[in-house]
Structure formats: structure tokens, C-alpha cells
């Protein structure tokens, strides 16, 4: 293992988003805050999901998790497509870094960015509402696994896309709908049975439901099941990513 090489690539990836923190950290925190203000204001009086949990409080874990996964995806996918389009990906490809080191560096950077935004959203949100914490371990497990799933998906999308609009398509037609239809703003028990069924095929639903369990100790489905689905999603996407990287798919022509 070329640990120094891996560290360097990770450091470079972290520096890349840190140098433009206004767009990569602050902007998504503000976006989440806006959702929070609008939905909490509009629905607080009308919706009660779990006993003893205000709608405002219910909303926050979902928003944090949504921020984590969207930003993890955005980080690896946009970094890769930019490097591919500008051509500077060659500097990494010319080096002796292995596909595994390449994967770990992009994955960890995506996780750091996702979780950094998540922490930012959390810090701002607790200024408005008091949140209980049922289990820090559960919170961590879902934050790490969720960001890892989307970090991997972002690598796949970044490798596959050849143009920015292809990547935007992936984001708009896959990541956004799945994250919005995952129960961030509602409990799936409030949905008609058909859509409840559909939601069970959405891995994002389990990440958000499980993460919410970490705060309230209540959830729509058993948190173990959520953890299982999230872990399997990570295993599958991680394997696909490693397979593509090993083959040099769209990177080493």
C-alpha cells in the first residue's frame, strides 16, 4: 500500500473543496436551512409524525442526512468530471497509485465533505429546536455508511459521465428524486400503500429512517434492517466502483 500516495490524493481532494468552501460547505448548509424554515413554518401546526416529537424536530435528521448524501455524491462526482474534462486526471493516472488507493482517497474525501456539511446543518438546526440523541453510535454508523454509499455512487457517475450535463442528468434524475422521496419531509406511513411499497425499494429511505432512529429511538422500520440495507448498498456500490477502477473503465482507454 502506497500510504503516502493515498494520503496525498486525499489531502488534495480535501483541499480542493476546502479552497472553495463558500460553494462546497456554506451554500449547502444554507440550502438545508431554507428547506427547514419553509417546511417547518408551513407544516408545524398540521403534521405530527411521532408522539412527543414536533414536526420541526422530525424534519431535522432527514435534512441532515439528505445534506450528507447529496454532498458526498457531489464531491466525488464533480471532482472526477472536472479532472476528466480539464485533463488533469492524468497526473493521478501517471502515478503508481493503485485503483484501491484511488478509490479510498476519493471515497474518504466525499465522506468528509458530506459529514462536514451534515455537522454544519446540525449545528445551525439545534439553535432552533432541541433534539434528543438516542444513540451516537447509530448516528455515526448511518452518517459514515450513507456518505460512503453516495461517495461511491459519485465516483461511478463521475467516471461514467463524459460531459457536465450527463452528470447533471444523473444528479437530477437519480440522486435528487431518490433523496426527496425518501421520507425527509414525511413519514412513509402517511403515504398511500402503493407509495409506501415503492419507498421500500429506495435505499435512501433506509439511510434517513435509520439516522432518524439515532435521534429519537423511533423509526418507520427496524433500524437493524435499515443498517443492513445501507451496508449492503455500500458493499455493492463499492464493489462496482472498484471493478470499474480496476478495469480502467473510461479512465485508461
Amino acid at each position: 500500500m502506497n500510504l503516502r500516495g493515498l494520503n496525498t490524493l486525499l489531502y488534495k481532494e480535501l483541499l480542493r473543496f476546502y479552497k472553495v468552501w463558500l460553494q462546497t460547505l456554506l451554500a449547502p448548509i444554507i440550502t438545508a436551512l431554507l428547506y427547514f424554515l419553509v417546511f417547518a413554518h408551513a407544516l408545524e401546526e398540521h403534521v405530527q409524525v411521532y408522539d412527543g416529537v414536533s414536526y420541526t424536530a422530525f424534519l431535522i435528521p432527514g435534512l441532515i442526512m439528505m445534506s450528507i448524501i447529496q454532498n458526498a455524491f457531489a464531491n466525488s462526482s464533480s471532482s472526477l468530471i472536472q479532472s476528466k474534462i480539464t485533463g488533469n486526471i492524468v497526473f493521478v493516472l501517471l502515478s503508481p497509485l493503485s485503483y484501491l488507493e484511488f478509490y479510498l482517497a476519493f471515497l474518504l474525501a466525499a465522506m468528509v465533505r458530506g459529514i462536514a456539511v451534515g455537522i454544519g446543518v446540525c449545528v445551525v438546526a439545534v439553535a432552533f429546536v432541541e433534539l434528543p440523541v438516542h444513540s451516537v453510535t447509530v448516528l455515526l454508523a448511518f452518517a459514515l455508511l450513507g456518505s460512503a454509499v453516495l461517495g461511491s455512487l459519485g465516483i461511478i457517475a463521475g467516471i461514467w459521465a463524459e460531459k457536465f450535463d450527463q452528470l447533471a442528468g444523473f444528479q437530477n434524475f437519480v440522486v435528487l428524486p431518490l433523496s426527496f422521496l425518501s421520507g425527509v419531509f414525511y413519514s412513509i406511513h402517511s403515504l398511500p400503500p402503493f407509495w409506501q411499497g415503492v419507498s421500500h425499494f429506495n435505499p435512501f429511505f433506509y439511510m434517513i429512517d435509520g439516522f432518524r432512529y439515532g435521534f429519537f429511538g423511533v423509526s418507520d422500520v427496524n433500524p437493524w434492517r435499515s443498517l443492513g440495507v445501507t451496508a449492503v448498498s455500500f458493499a455493492v456500490l463499492g464493489a462496482i466502483t472498484l471493478f470499474l477502477l480496476k478495469r480502467g473503465y473510461k479512465l485508461r482507454h
Binding site: 500510504l3 503516502r4 490524493l9 480539464t86 485533463g87 488533469n88 492524468v90 497526473f91
Partner: peptide, 26 residues
């Protein structure tokens, strides 16, 4: 490489340090 590629996020020295780092050099 033939194409004039570069990483717009970094300074000359950063670019060289990073490149050396990929090769395991510090």
C-alpha cells in the same frame, strides 16, 4: 503529456508537492 493540462486549484509548488506525494515522496 502533449496537452497543456493543469490543475487550476493549486500553486506551482503545491502541484509539485502533490505530484511527488503520489509517488510516495515527502
Amino acid at each position: 503529456p502533449q496537452e497543456l493540462v493543469f490543475d487550476p486549484f493549486f500553486t506551482v509548488r503545491e502541484v509539485l508537492r502533490i505530484q511527488a506525494g503520489y509517488f510516495g515522496l515527502g
